[in-house]
Design a protein around this nucleic acid. Structure first.
Lengths: 143, 143
DNA sequence: TATACTGTTAATATAAATATACACAGTAGA
DNA sequence: TCTACTGTGTATATTTATATTAACAGTATA
């Protein structure tokens, strides 16, 4: 049995975003980007909860949510693993949340009578800006 | 003093989306699209509440939220009006909600390691699909 | 001024989201 | 088997979001 590894996740109870959601987003990102390989044993809910200074139940919820999404597999008494999702299904899961968010945004735009052209421009702006922020943040990490 | 007009808004207590939010989205749309002209007197909170079969407080919240956004102006004892926002400011208000939603969507995409190209494609897909749905719904209204 | 409209405020009810503790049950290995 | 680990289920606390009532205060006008 593989040794469970330390998961590089940062959460803060101060943020408005609930703990379980912060964890889900980051863990999902690690899995769908391939940084956590299929079959990887995750920390036990107690160990992970201790690491992140939160309740066992919160981790339990995260594992359960991601299992329902199909990207984790869990067995009582044994542990929780990254599921054996094929490349195709992984792509689908990866896109689902994004598509949902994009649709919500577009819907908002149509509600206030944005034209398609206008929406494309605003999208491009947002994308450029966040890409810039991200590369900026990456650079600062090394400081 | 102008006669307050009937506002064409449809709400449903059955939907998961809260009442106040349904009303806000639609009323904001009517104002920012120019269908409700600047200076227009809106129904009193009691009359509007009666029309929509909801509480006075719910309408009150809507008016207050939109006043905080700067697109309504309200005076105790007199009524609530569409604010005198210039074309420039109206454009800004109109875009704000959309930009926020788009940024959230893009952030989600970057979280799961989408490439910019991929996000552009997904955005275009979502836009096309919702445009199709909308024109479809418009057509059915006449049935 | 009287009255009949406006919006306002405070106190409260209800439901949903978030987070928790603790007792329970399955699994693996000494 | 015993022990020490896994996840599971129940019952509950806490907070936030949503919605409400009823008494209050400003405004316009007959």
């Amino acid at each position: 049995m593989d040794k469970p590894l330390k998961i590089p996740i940062q959460v803060s109870a101060d943020r408005a975003e609930p703990m379980y959601h912060q964890i889900e987003v980051q863990l999902r990102g690690l899995i769908l980007s391939g940084q956590l390989a299929e079959g990887t044993l995750l920390p036990s809910i107690r160990e992970f909860a201790s690491d992140l200074s939160c309740s066992v139940i919160t981790i339990r919820r995260v594992y359960q949510d991601l299992e329902n999404e199909g990207i984790l597999r869990t067995r009582q008494g044994t542990g929780t693993f990254v599921a054996q999702v094929g490349e195709v299904r992984r792509e689908r899961y990866r896109k689902e949340a994004v598509v949902e968010a994009l649709r919500a945004a577009v819907r908002t735009g149509l509600d206030v009578q944005c034209t398609p052209e206008e929406l494309r421009n605003l999208f491009e702006e947002a994308l450029e800006q966040l890409l810039a922020e991200e590369s900026g943040a990456k650079g600062e990490e090394q400081t």
